[in-house]
């Protein structure tokens, strides 16, 4: 565990909690892509199946349970409790275009051809693109609430910090995981455009709105 890994995890946790609180406090999930949230719930579910097979540390187990629990709570709030506020018309990204290729790729390129390992690989690949329905929704509506941009920033920052973690681990531990690294780079690159808008607009007190 190094500082990048820890801050990455905390950034991820912050993102998840920001989103939950935003929906809970405003009693609305307007502007939030339910599809992205379903994909994240699927990511955590398929990645953390090792909760049943191996114990790593109390930290590891607690974080996994919190991530999974929050992911399903978010999906519940969007599709059940505050369903009336869900903006389904703008959440029109076709997720099968992500899930099917990612499923195929995880069967073809993995560390080991076993069910748990393939599901883990699937989760890594899927996570790298799971935000696309959300970004698509923002590009469609042309704007995002400021609190939503804070959520996206923390979520993007988390994988960027993991990249630094992997650089650190390569130099100091000789460790690298090519699948996680390539997917992590893809994931971070997808946020770059957003990072730019966040820094140039949101941090200067302006609302994030895209030119028509």
């Amino acid at each position: 565990m190094n500082i990048f890994r820890l801050t990455g995890d905390l950034s991820h946790l912050a993102a998840i909690i920001i989103l939950l609180l935003k929906i809970w406090k405003s009693r609305s999930c307007a502007g939030i892509s339910g599809k992205s949230q379903i994909l994240f719930a699927l990511v955590f579910t398929t990645r953390y199946l090792d909760l049943f097979t191996s114990f790593i540390s109390l930290y590891n187990t607690c974080m996994k349970l919190i991530y999974i629990g929050c992911a399903y709570a978010t999906v519940y709030l969007i599709y059940a409790k505050f369903r009336a506020t869900y903006d389904g018309n703008h959440d029109s990204f076709r997720v099968e275009f992500l899930v099917v290729p990612v499923g195929g790729l995880s069967v073809l390129i993995n560390h080991d051809f076993s069910p748990l390992e393939i599901l883990w690989t699937f989760s890594i690949y899927l996570e790298s693109v799971a935000i696309l329905p959300q970004l698509f929704m923002i590009s469609k509506t042309g704007e995002a609430e400021t609190i939503t941009t804070h959520y996206l920033f923390c979520l993007g920052l988390y994988r960027a910090l993991y990249l630094f973690n992997w650089i650190w681990r390569f130099y100091f531990e000789g460790f690298f995981d090519m699948i996680a690294i390539v997917a992590g780079v893809v994931q971070t690159v997808l946020y770059c455009d957003f990072f730019y808008l966040y820094v140039t607009k949101v941090l200067k007190g302006k609302k994030l709105s895209l030119p028509a």
Binding site: M1, R5, D9, H12, D50, S54, I56, S57, N60, M63, K64, Y67, H111, D112, W120, Y162, N165, F175, F176, D177, I179, A180
Partner: peptide, 10 residues
């Protein structure tokens, strides 16, 4: 050299 994944990372 093939390194396997780290089960500790989230």
């Amino acid at each position: 050299e093939e390194t396997t994944k780290d089960k500790d990372e989230l």
